[in-house]
Amino acid sequence: MRISSDQVERIAQLARLHLEDDERERIRGDLQGILEHVGRLDEIDVDEIDPMHNPAESDANVLRDDIVVESGVSDGFLESVPRRDDRYVTTPRFVDPGSDGHG
């Protein structure tokens, strides 16, 4: 499988990253190398093996009771964010709420 410059650009957009041309080419090479390395797994015959979705497959149902535990981090969190307005965290305005997901 060969990864194209366009695919790198698309992944960068999804990750909200801006790449310069030289960066895009360098990262394309890196991703290509990673895919080739991981691609060796394709050589293994897995027809008879059930897919494993999780490394903790044997520890199913790690659950907690529905109990409220106050973290106590609220104020410290608000002190540490770069921008806030009273108790709200603020970011530059987003124009089109909900257009990129939410369901």
Binding site: S71, V73, S74, V89
Partner: peptide, 24 residues
């Protein structure tokens, strides 16, 4: 209709001051 959130112990109470029911 739970008391705490899906994956942490923060309260699901509606109407708390902003950013009160939060944790790492």
């Amino acid at each position: 209709n739970t008391r705490s959130k899906m994956f942490c112990g923060c309260s699901t109470d509606f109407g708390a001051p902003p950013n009160t029911n939060v944790c790492p």
